[in-house]
């Protein structure tokens, strides 16, 4: 899709034709994706769509079988030091060392990151109400996520990567996570990439979105383009129809008799012209939520 603001700076993430299989299962299939510097990039897909596998390639935890992965212009497998130190990462499992106390976890993580900001770390610990002396093992699920978020944020990374940050968390902790994403990009030039299947959250915070399904990227565009280019129209025909008459760009359709509702990709004017061309009147026309767009894309 055409980018109205081609950036002079190279992308933070540049993935080209990446494929990966685990035994028989094709986890990623010819994935190309660029994440521009600045802003929030939302990677959306259902369970097992390939989100985590993609993220593991960014962090150099998996080596590409086919294709290339570059992050800050570097290969993360060959340059773990040059890349990992600039990334803050919160995994879906929030795999933290269980035996440590929160204070120890902070000191331990600090050792890996020259840019660690002590006062920011303390500020976050205070805001998240984390006890320095509590063992990681004893933390509730929400507090564990907050601890993971703290160590991902406290070195003020250029790129914050969050894999399903909200999954299984209560609304209060989810607010903290969204707040952290917003604070991160409010600082000039920093970038957030997060994967999620909670689409209302993605719609709130993402500038750009990629939909991944069965290891393939189905769609990547700015949130605005995605919203503009999908509509739900209800058409009324002069005679009853047994099947929904074909409409250009249809992703899904439901209805009966005189009236049929279509979820379509295409801009408003195009759709109205197309409806006219098949002899129908538009009786209802609405923009879609990201959730509805995602579902119709996946099912089509």
């Amino acid at each position: 899709m055409h980018d109205p603001f081609p950036s002079a700076t190279p992308p933070i993430v540049d993935i080209r034709r990446l494929s990966r299989h685990f035994g028989e299962k094709q986890a990623l299939n010819d994935v190309s994706l660029t994440v521009p510097r600045g802003g929030v990039f939302g990677l959306i897909g259902g369970n097992g769509a390939g989100k985590t596998t993609l993220i593991k390639h960014l962090l150099g935890m998996l080596k590409p079988q086919h294709g290339t992965v570059q992050i800050f212009g570097l290969d993360p497998v060959a340059n773990p030091v040059g890349t990992l130190g600039r990334i803050g990462y919160l995994s879906e499992e929030r795999d933290l060392p269980d035996w440590m106390r929160v204070g120890e976890l902070m000191r331990y993580t600090q050792a890996f990151f020259p840019n660690w900001d002590d006062s920011f770390a303390e500020e976050l610990r205070d805001a998240f109400d984390l006890d320095k002396n509590a063992r990681v093992k004893t933390l509730s699920r929400g507090q564990r996520a907050r601890a993971g978020l703290l160590v991902a944020l406290a070195h003020r990374p250029e790129l914050l990567v969050l894999d399903e940050p909200s999954s299984g968390l209560d609304p209060v902790v989810r607010r903290d996570i969204l707040g952290a994403i917003i604070r991160t990009i409010a600082d000039e030039g920093r970038t957030v990439l997060f994967s999620s299947h909670l689409l209302d959250e993605v719609e709130r915070v993402a500038d750009r979105v990629a939909i991944i399904h069965q290891g393939r990227i189905l769609l990547t565009a700015s949130m605005e383009e995605i919203k503009q280019q999908h509509r739900r129209v209800t058409l009324r025909f002069e005679t009853t129809q047994d099947q929904p008459p074909a409409l250009v760009g249809t992703l899904s359709s439901t209805g009966s008799g005189y009236e049929w509702t279509y979820v379509c990709s295409g801009e408003r004017i195009q759709l109205h012209r197309a409806a006219e061309a098949i002899g129908a009147t538009v009786v209802d026309d609405a923009a879609l939520s990201l959730d509805e767009i995602f579902v119709s894309r996946i099912l089509s």
């Binding site: 969204l178 990009i185 709130r204 915070v205």
Partner: peptide, 13 residues
Amino acid sequence: IRVLASQLLVNPN
């Protein structure tokens, strides 16, 4: 902008 973005939990842009 930043204050409203944090309050509403939406992207500052």
